[in-house]
Design a protein around this nucleic acid. Structure first.
Lengths: 152, 152
DNA sequence: GTATTTCCTAGTGACTTGATGGGAAAACGT
DNA sequence: ACGTTTTCCCATCAAGTCACTAGGAAATAC
């Protein structure tokens, strides 16, 4: 289960936009510099975000990108789905489309539970939450046990 | 976030072994047929499970594979890690090794929370649980709302 | 009209994924 | 001892994905 570079970059770019929520649009180049993302690569990502309706753009003179709506109403899941498709898939297919037989039958509900859990987190956290460094209480609670920060 | 075919196959193979917990080892070919997995591909996977110490093998005559321990003490996470490495990574690196700046700083705790949540599920469910179709109450609860079964 | 910045298309090298094939090594039954 | 079975261990493969780059067309500002 890996978060792709695209997804990571997309979220960070969106966060940068959430932070500069003034009237003036932010240029791709500025975001690339601030977050250390290859800027031509980022351009493509921002474009996808625009096509998904999360971001609006203006070109020319002092153009750039702005969030399409309030940062509090865009979830991390929204951003990831815009650039990477379904949040979680098994072998490239979404859980509900899977079919298991024999002793593996209960694997489907397991994947469903997993996905539901992932959704709960990524849909429950907004750009405003992260940019403002105020994660929801439930999410923060998960980070409290020191074991959460150590590798297996 | 995708579960690879290797991981899916590995878990299903392990479940098949958990189901036939008799003395006689199960042949790769039998597992491949039962779960519809390319059998040469499966052979490699079973080998990795053996190297990880989850499975023991015997060759020749009536050889095959057996679980190395009781199905109740092998978690789904164990199996996935054996064939795919870390459960969750961002751009290929594990969350604790990441560094974020500016408005993205709180992204790290978010990934940590996500990983912690995924762990909770995959480490908390054993092969015996799935093979016996008796998922832990907490996991089952996640599958109850119909919304868990629908795509976004 | 010129400078700027987004938008679009195409392409690239490296890696991963899913899968296949051929045998060598080990264990069995007889 | 012998032949069969089955795991084990390469090597390879096509296809795809990933991360990234290049070049230019279209739109907007001044």
């Amino acid at each position: 289960m890996r978060i792709s570079a695209r997804a990571d970059y997309a979220v960070r770019a969106a966060l940068q936009l959430a932070a500069s929520a003034e009237a003036a649009p932010v240029k791709a180049e500025a975001i690339a510099a601030a977050q250390d993302i290859p800027h031509k690569f980022l351009e493509g990502i921002l474009n996808e975000l625009r096509r998904a309706g999360l971001v609006v753009s203006r070109r020319g003179g002092n153009g750039g990108y702005r969030l399409a709506g309030p940062a509090a109403s865009i979830s991390i899941a929204d951003v990831i789905r815009a650039v990477d498709g379904p949040l979680v898939s098994v072998r490239g297919v979404r859980p509900p489309d899977l079919a298991y037989t024999g002793p593996a039958e209960s694997l489907l509900p397991l994947w469903i539970a997993l996905r539901s859990n992932v959704r709960e987190i990524l849909e429950g956290v907004s750009l405003a939450d992260v940019a403002g460094a105020e994660l929801p209480r439930g999410v923060l609670a998960l980070t409290e046990p020191p074991s959460a920060w150590t590798n297996p």
